[in-house]
């Protein structure tokens, strides 16, 4: 029967196994290419530029990458459920403005300002999630509308002016380090590790992925998909707020313009990092690698004296490239898989 035939070839697969099959399974992973690309880029930069491997530069690169990780997580967490959050940057901006208003205008301590700002971001995410599940509209439309709502609030509250009177204590997180590694970076790695664990081992993580894979089927398997969608948008708000606050902590001032470039960054890092655009797949390692890669590229553009005003154009092109490379990788790995089995 076919059964035995299948088992037979599986056995062969295993026996042929060892390094070969391990390598193959590595290449089938969606995050392999970005990790390799990042390493290559890193090596290239180290050799071509003497100032690259300086502690100062590495500190900066890892710190920026860490911030990108949070921005990307805000997007990735909704992409895995099959949605998107266009208002991510605006939520970040609003968090920054609220933090600035509390600490500068009102003169409150960070112990009050930070929780209030976090709460704001969280509420914004909840707002998105609530409207989406109640109205049954898709996340594109809803977050497009809330993008304008939140942006309006940012501008209305701040009148466009930055809040520069931020307590020094609050900048420790964004500026200091542990043995040369920025706190922010350690924080990002910790959060990514936690997420990787949650998506692999926790019921809620599995349910988020299942919802992204097929919402109807997930619901009919007893998953409260509305709750999952709500949760993912809430978390998106939390990540946006975190990113916003870390930005303030790093800059030592609260800029209302924070977040305006997050839309492209969040999608770029999330997609290049192997988050499947139609949901259901997430890679913590991929996000970390792609955040570093993007930082390196931006860093490189500056070193090459490319006009910073064109930066967004480059980012857009990179996203396009990443998506095309990804589809080529899938096609290629299918082909190699096929010829390999033929040979065996």
């Amino acid at each position: 029967m076919a059964q035995s035939k299948v088992e037979h070839s599986v056995r062969q697969d295993r026996e042929a196994g060892g390094i070969g099959s391990a390598l193959r399974s590595v290449f089938r992973r969606s995050d392999t290419s970005v990790v390799i690309a990042t390493v290559i880029l890193f090596v290239l930069f180290s050799f071509s530029n003497t100032s690259f491997l300086t502690p100062f530069n590495l500190f900066n690169v890892s710190r920026t990458a860490a911030l990108y990780v949070f921005v990307a997580l805000g997007q990735a967490i909704v992409i895995v459920t099959g949605g998107m959050n266009l208002s991510l940057g605006a939520i970040g901006g609003l968090t920054v403005v609220v933090a600035g208003w509390c600490m500068d205008t009102m003169g409150w301590s960070p112990w009050i300002g930070v929780p209030l700002a976090m709460l704001t971001g969280t509420l914004c995410g909840m707002f998105n999630g609530f409207i989406i599940i109640k109205s049954k509209l898709n996340s594109f439309i809803v977050t497009l509308a809330s993008l304008f709502i939140f942006t309006g609030l940012v501008q209305g509250i701040s009148q466009g002016f930055p809040y520069s009177n931020i307590p020094r204590d609050f900048t420790i997180l964004g500026r200091n380090d542990f043995l040369g590694v920025p706190y922010v970076f350690l924080f990002a790695v910790a959060v990514l590790t936690a997420l990787a664990y949650v998506f692999k081992f926790r019921v809620v993580g599995r349910r988020i992925l299942a919802t992204g894979g097929n919402l109807e089927a997930a619901r009919l398997s007893g998953i409260r998909t509305d709750n999952i969608v709500f949760l993912s948008h809430t978390l998106s708000g939390v990540f946006a707020a975190t990113a916003g606050l870390l930005w303030v902590s790093r800059m030592g001032s609260a800029q209302p313009s924070t977040g305006t470039d997050w839309l492209i960054i969040s999608f770029a890092v999330a997609i290049i990092g192997g988050t499947a655009l139609n949901g259901g797949e997430f890679s913590a390692l991929g996000i970390l690698a792609s955040a570093i890669m993007l930082t390196l590229i931006k860093n490189g553009l500056i070193m090459l004296n490319v006009n910073v005003y064109f930066e967004q154009t480059f980012l857009g092109v990179i996203v396009l490239l990443a998506v095309s490379v990804e589809s080529i990788r899938v096609a290629l790995s299918n082909r190699t898989k096929r010829t390999k089995t033929d040979a065996s």
């Binding site: 992925l209 299942a210 894979g213 097929n214 109807e216 089927a217 997930a218 009919l220 499947a276 259901g280 797949e281």
Partner: peptide, 9 residues
């Protein structure tokens, strides 16, 4: 296909 399974999983 539509309601029973997550085909990508």
């Amino acid at each position: 296909k539509e309601k029973g399974l997550i085909l990508s999983a």
